[in-house]
Lab assay of single mutants.
Amino acid sequence: KSIMKVYCQICRKGDNEELLLLCDGCDKGCHTYCHRPKITTIPDGDWFCPACIAKA
């Protein structure tokens, strides 16, 4: 079994998992407080990182 360690693409830390959003496009993580602008609430439904939005 392989366990994927998810970490924030900005701060490179994997702590505060409850505030770590996973992109529905690329599965990369980003803390709500590292994202600019900050994300104050966990979004309902799908969330896409800035890189995936730029590709769309």
Results as ranks from 00 to 15, higher is better:
residue 29 G to N: 12
residue 42 I to Y: 08
residue 34 C to D: 01
residue 17 E to V: 14
residue 40 T to K: 15
residue 56 A to V: 14
residue 31 H to L: 00
residue 42 I to K: 13
residue 51 A to E: 14
residue 49 C to V: 00
residue 28 K to L: 11
residue 32 T to C: 03
residue 40 T to C: 15
residue 15 D to Y: 02
residue 12 R to W: 04
residue 35 H to M: 13
residue 1 K to P: 15
residue 55 K to L: 00
residue 25 G to Q: 13
residue 31 H to N: 02
residue 41 T to R: 11
residue 53 I to R: 08
residue 16 N to S: 12
residue 26 C to A: 01
residue 31 H to F: 00
residue 7 Y to W: 07
residue 16 N to V: 05
residue 18 E to G: 11
residue 21 L to H: 02
residue 56 A to P: 02
residue 49 C to L: 00
residue 38 K to A: 12
residue 6 V to Y: 15
residue 16 N to D: 14
residue 5 K to N: 11
residue 19 L to D: 06
residue 12 R to C: 06
residue 27 D to M: 07
residue 27 D to H: 03
residue 33 Y to L: 05
residue 28 K to P: 01
residue 28 K to M: 13
residue 24 D to H: 10
residue 7 Y to F: 09
residue 42 I to E: 15
residue 49 C to H: 03
residue 25 G to D: 05
residue 5 K to S: 12
residue 1 K to N: 07
residue 38 K to Q: 04
residue 19 L to V: 12
residue 27 D to G: 13
residue 1 K to S: 05
residue 24 D to K: 12
residue 36 R to S: 15
residue 33 Y to H: 07
residue 20 L to D: 01
residue 46 D to F: 03
residue 27 D to K: 13
residue 56 A to Q: 05
residue 25 G to I: 02
residue 8 C to E: 00
residue 46 D to E: 14
residue 28 K to I: 03
residue 3 I to W: 04
residue 44 D to C: 14
residue 42 I to H: 04
residue 1 K to V: 01
residue 33 Y to A: 08
residue 31 H to Q: 01
residue 3 I to T: 10
residue 55 K to A: 01
residue 24 D to M: 13
residue 39 I to M: 14
residue 27 D to I: 14
residue 25 G to K: 11
residue 52 C to G: 02
residue 17 E to H: 03
residue 13 K to L: 10
residue 35 H to N: 08
residue 45 G to K: 02
residue 7 Y to K: 06
residue 37 P to Y: 01
residue 20 L to S: 03
residue 1 K to D: 05
residue 49 C to K: 00
residue 9 Q to S: 15
residue 22 L to M: 10
residue 43 P to Q: 13
residue 31 H to C: 02
residue 43 P to Y: 03
residue 11 C to L: 00
residue 34 C to V: 01
residue 22 L to I: 10
residue 21 L to M: 09
residue 49 C to P: 00
residue 2 S to A: 09
residue 35 H to S: 08
residue 48 F to Y: 14
residue 13 K to H: 09
residue 54 A to Q: 15
residue 34 C to R: 01
residue 44 D to H: 12
residue 41 T to M: 07
residue 18 E to A: 12
residue 13 K to V: 07
residue 28 K to V: 10
residue 22 L to N: 10
residue 54 A to S: 09
residue 38 K to W: 04
residue 25 G to S: 06
residue 16 N to Y: 11
residue 55 K to R: 00
residue 43 P to M: 03
residue 41 T to E: 13
residue 39 I to A: 09
residue 41 T to D: 09
residue 43 P to I: 15
residue 17 E to F: 02
residue 15 D to F: 07
residue 28 K to Y: 11
residue 38 K to L: 13
residue 36 R to F: 06
residue 51 A to R: 08
residue 2 S to M: 04
residue 47 W to L: 03
residue 13 K to I: 07
residue 38 K to F: 06
residue 8 C to F: 00
residue 29 G to T: 08
residue 20 L to Y: 08
residue 49 C to N: 01
residue 14 G to R: 13
residue 47 W to H: 05
residue 3 I to A: 13
residue 29 G to Q: 10
residue 43 P to F: 02
residue 24 D to I: 15
residue 10 I to R: 08
residue 25 G to Y: 04
residue 40 T to N: 04
residue 14 G to K: 10
residue 24 D to F: 03
residue 46 D to G: 11
residue 42 I to W: 12
residue 56 A to M: 03
residue 37 P to Q: 04
residue 35 H to T: 11
residue 37 P to E: 14
residue 25 G to L: 03
residue 41 T to C: 08
residue 45 G to M: 02
residue 4 M to E: 05
residue 50 P to L: 01
residue 52 C to Q: 02
residue 50 P to E: 15
residue 19 L to M: 14
residue 11 C to H: 00
residue 32 T to P: 03
residue 48 F to N: 15
residue 21 L to I: 09
residue 19 L to H: 05
residue 36 R to G: 12
residue 3 I to H: 06
residue 15 D to V: 10
residue 4 M to H: 12
residue 12 R to L: 08
residue 31 H to P: 02
residue 28 K to A: 09
residue 14 G to D: 10
